[in-house]
């Protein structure tokens, strides 16, 4: 029996997700043994035309990481969708838009201008910008165009499963791959991680009082944190209560608060709104001026509450931007 074909692909991503696959360590050998990898740009050399030549649905599963920002990424997402039985959004960017999705706060032109002209580290007196195409020695090379906004994978193509995390941990990666190979798949659309918030598995849970009320917010670098006490009880924003568990509380065990990379539970449409609603309702002062003082401890609310989920939130983008 031929081995099932599997593809790995990356879009707007940092490479961390690829790293996790490698982090499977010796387990990766088991995976490689059982499958036939047909595409993996970070590790192996394949040509897109080979992929195009494959029959539709001939790949069992594509694990795609990264968000969709460029025309090329969109095109590849559609191509892989056509060729694959299952498309799996792998990692926070494909799942929720990820850190890349924070770009949805700014118009494309503003981002390009900063990166090619205004950033302190840029030396570009001619203000050269990448062109979509140009003529050179009789050739006409082209570059993909950037969309106005960053999208999660399921805002572009139909997605079967999601493996959350920035990056997904080896444990949940293995669980997903095993489920796939053993054909023990959950209902379509599932996020392959527990559907309960992180507090459930956080060792600091018991130290959270029942009447937490915030008189201030501090960021981790601004204080010496108690290594065992609930972060929220210390006035440090922790996304744990609004974030899916499954990471085995990697960050909170490592001395840092949860930043929300596993995304919301299945019952929540907007992770940022939910945690804001919860934290703000528990702010101790009741007068506007005093409330504002407490909230000054969160200088970047979008980056704090929507670090991974802006593209998939209810607003998705700065309202003046186009939807794609």
């Amino acid at each position: 029996m031929p081995k099932p074909k599997v593809a790995f692909y990356w879009c707007a991503s940092c490479g961390g997700c690829e790293e996790t696959v490698v982090d499977l360590a010796e387990d990766i050998l088991g995976v490689v043994e059982k499958v036939d990898i047909v595409l993996w740009p970070v590790a192996m050399d394949f040509k897109y035309k080979d992929l195009e030549a494959m029959p539709d649905k001939s790949i069992v599963a594509t694990l795609l990481n990264g968000a969709i920002r460029s025309t090329e990424q969109e095109e590849m997402a559609h191509l892989l969708r056509r060729k694959s039985r299952y498309v799996i959004a792998y990692g926070a960017c494909a799942h929720l838009g990820g850190i890349a999705g924070l770009a949805n706060q700014f118009p494309r032109e503003q981002i390009l201008k900063f990166n090619y002209e205004d950033a302190p580290s840029v030396v570009n007196e001619q203000k050269t910008r990448p062109q979509l195409s140009f003529a050179h020695n009789g050739h006409n090379p082209t570059l993909p165009a950037l969309h106005h906004v960053v999208r999660a994978l399921d805002q572009v193509v139909d997605v079967d499963y999601y493996v959350p995390g920035c990056p997904p941990t080896p444990k949940i990666t293995s669980a997903a791959v095993t489920a796939l190979l053993e054909n023990r798949l959950p209902p379509k659309g599932s996020v392959i991680a527990p559907d309960i918030a992180l507090c459930d598995e956080c060792p600091r849970k018991a130290s959270k009082p029942t009447n937490v009320s915030f008189t201030h917010f501090k960021r981790p670098h601004q204080m010496l944190m108690d290594p065992e006490k609930c972060f929220l009880a210390q006035g440090v924003v922790c996304m744990g209560p609004s974030t899916r568990s499954g990471c085995e509380a990697a960050c909170t065990c490592g001395g840092m608060p949860c930043t929300g990379c596993f995304g919301p539970t299945s019952r929540v449409r907007d992770q940022g709104l939910k945690i804001m609603s919860s934290l703000c309702a528990n702010v101790a002062p009741k007068e506007e001026a005093d409330i504002n003082k407490v909230l000054e401890g969160i200088p970047d609310p979008v980056g704090t509450f929507y670090r991974y989920g802006l593209a998939k939130s209810l607003v998705r983008r700065k309202v003046t931007l186009p939807v794609k």
Partner: peptide, 28 residues
Amino acid sequence: ILADECSGCKSCIPLCPYTAISFDETRE
């Protein structure tokens, strides 16, 4: 409360104006 889904984060407890919410210490 959806008991299986509640993570026991206690965010809701101080907010109830009718003190209708308590924390079940055994089930957390």
